[in-house]
Write a protein that binds this DNA or RNA. Structure first.
Length: 582
RNA sequence: GCCCACGUAGCUCAGACGGUAGAGCACGUUCUUGGUAAGGACGUGGUCACGGGUUCAAUUCCCGUCGUGGGCUCCA
């Protein structure tokens, strides 16, 4: 058993690092320095920018401190003493002043370094191992996460129990980085982005297009089965639409500048909802029509600040798998539960964990004045309440409580995918009504929901999830036919058309590379099946099947491969069935 | 948007006190016709991101813009 929790050691390491920085920059102002998931950081206000060389020096100084086994000493002091002690540390003073009155002020010293800190820490710096610490990067970070406050320099470090653990961790990071969709997308010829054609705009290549088609076909099929109707709407709309929805007021920073058409302002759509509402308003609706479930693969354009764009995961034009459910207050619970149970398969990992919060919130709130939610549910008050609107917007919710689902990428960052959001605002703004069984007009409830989130982001994470090796049913190329010499190409074409006729995405590699090179190319493209054909196969009407796992299944008649591959396709499990058959 | 770094062939990268550049892979031609992860030869390919400035001369130095990477803030 290690003597200390990693968290304690990491926090101590951040103090040791801060001490080292203070020795290099005696005038440094200290921010905060907590332990984080895999390491620690410390924020500094320094007279100049740090460089990679500085990191080496800092690590050297940390090493000295660790070798000297300097004891950590805890001390509780009065507020006045603390203010005196940190008189030249404005950020510490600010933290101090924000501490509640009844909290005792504790400080930790080791050597000449002293920090306002709750602890705990290791006994002495010698409890850390200098060879299991790495300083990873220098980054900018706003003081207290507020972009209006000064930007400090943050040093990220990582610490483990042993040198080996550190090595393993760094190796793991490298391994994960290999799954990065940005490089896989290029190597597998799935998509591209072009600086000269505009940042954050995605070009889907034929192979990426195949995967997207499969995702969309699947999406459409499940939605129709799930009681949704598919709708289509324009990409631009007159300013009236956005004024009415409120987007022009509250979402303005994310919208592109208007274009003048015959003296009228038109805007690229950042959202699909107002269009679906227009469809709703196109005729009188009865309670007998509800619930309405309208889905659209709607492409939206949003201005994103330049620093936040990231491959497919954060772009400026993307397609949402958007849907709006318009229902009566009585139907809302069933509708939400229906979404939570939605047989989305590809998107539904973890959906069930979301609980019943919004349903309860909606019920308690009666749909007009809502209680404050917790977690990711966003506060909502009255429709039309400007302050509340703005808060929802800033919080990322349009108009009410929501459920969000986040998935981590290869680099460990979280990205929002699924979102389910109540909207008590737009029905009001657009004066949506239905005629109830009492003959009176009533206000319907509206739910926005996207399961995949955006097709682009979903695809990016899908690439990383599979490391580019898509399961057979999604693979852009399912089988590559590899003739050994030119005289086998003719038979190769026959096989190719047979497979294609059977619905398989097969391609013939007729290049004049050697077979080995063709196999290598297919491997690198992560093609599930490689079908080698030479003299023996031509004679027998067979193919030799190699899997991307490297397994060689030997020769089999083309029909046998076909039925096997189709069965595999149906089972959505490429390798196992083959092994069972083999 | 902010902090730091970066931008040389499609990709990965060399390179030069400032005197307009090179490799491997990819691509093309060609020889080779090969049994499960790279056969050989030859060749095409670059306004050294873009725009200014300094200079006899800028891809190299300075400034700006655009873009990329890692963070922060923000978000599907």
């Amino acid at each position: 058993m290690p003597k200390y929790e990693l968290e304690t050691m990491r926090h101590s390491a951040s103090h040791v690092m801060a001490e080292a920085v203070m020795r290099l920059f005696p005038d440094a102002k200290l921010g905060i320095g907590p332990a984080i998931e895999d390491g620690f950081y410390y924020d500094f206000d320094l007279p100049r920018s740090l460089t990679e060389d500085d990191l080496e020096k800092i690590l050297e100084l940390m090493k000295e401190s660790i070798k000297a086994k300097v004891p950590f000493e805890r001390e509780e002091i009065s507020r006045q003493e603390a203010e005196r002690l940190f008189a030249d540390q404005p950020y510490k003073l600010e933290l101090l002043r924000d501490l509640p009155e009844d909290v005792p002020i504790s400080i930790y010293r080791h050597g000449s370094f002293v920090d306002l800190c709750r602890g705990p820490h290791v006994e002495n710096t010698g409890d850390l191992r200098w060879d299991s610490i790495a300083l990873q990067s220098i980054a900018g970070a706003y003081w207290r996460g507020d972009e209006k406050r000064p930007m400090l320099q943050r040093i990220y470090g990582t610490l483990w129990h042993s040198k080996q653990e550190l090595r393993d961790y760094l190796a793991r990071l490298e391994e994960l980085a290999k799954r990065d969709h940005r490089w896989l997308g290029r190597d597998l010829d799935l998509f591209s982005l072009h600086e000269e054609a505009g940042a954050g705009l995605v070009y889907w290549h034929p192979k990426g297009g195949r995967v997207r088609t499969i995702i969309e076909d699947y999406w459409r099929k499940r939605h129709v089965e799930g009681g949704y109707d598919i709708v289509y709407s324009p990409h631009i709309g007159r300013s009236w639409l956005w004024e009415t929805s409120g987007h022009l007021d509250f979402y303005h920073d994310s919208m592109y500048a208007p274009m003048d058409i015959d003296g009228q302002d038109y805007y690229l759509k950042p959202m699909n909802c107002p269009f679906h509402i227009m469809i709703y308003r196109s005729r009188t609706r009865s309670y007998r029509d509800l619930p309405l479930r309208w889905a659209e693969l709607g492409t939206v354009y949003r201005y994103e600040r330049s620093g936040v764009l990231h491959g497919l995961l954060r772009v400026r034009g993307f397609t949402q798998d958007d849907a709006h459910i318009i229902c009566t207050p009585e139907q809302i619970e069933d509708e939400i539960l229906g979404v939570l149970r939605f047989p989305g398969h590809v998107a539904s990992h973890g959906l069930c964990r979301c609980g019943r919060l919004p349903v309860d919130a909606a019920r308690k709130g009666g749909g007009r004045a809502l209680p404050v939610g917790s977690g990711d549910a966003v506060t909502a008050t009255r429709p039309g309440d400007r302050r509340a609107d703005m808060r929802w917007m800033r919080g990322g919710a349009f108009y009410g409580p929501k459920i969000d689902l986040k998935i981590r990428d290869a680099l460990g960052r979280e990205w929002q995918m699924t979102t389910i959001q109540f909207d008590f605002n737009e029905p009001e703004r657009f004066d949506m009504v239905y005629v109830g069984d009492d003959g009176q007009e009533h206000r319907p409830y509206m739910v926005h929901r996207a399961l995949l989130g955006s097709i682009e982001r979903f695809f990016g994470l899908l690439i990383e999830h599979y490391g580019g090796a898509f399961p057979v049913w999604m693979a852009p190329v399912q089988a590559v036919i590899i003739p050994i010499t030119d005289r086998h190409v003719a038979f190769g074409r026959e096989v190719e058309s047979k497979l294609r006729a059977a619905g398989l995405r097969a391609e013939l590699d007729a290049s004049n590379d050697r077979m080995n090179a063709k196999i290598r190319a297919a491997q690198l493209n992560k093609v599930p099946y490689m079908l080698v054909i030479g003299d023996r196969e031509v004679e027998d009407g067979a193919v030799s099947v190699r899997l991307r796992s490297g397994e060689d299944l030997g020769a089999m008649p083309v029909e046998a491969f076909l039925s096997g591959a189709k069965a595999i396709d149906d089972a959505r499990d490429n390798q196992r069935l083959w092994k069972a058959e083999a």
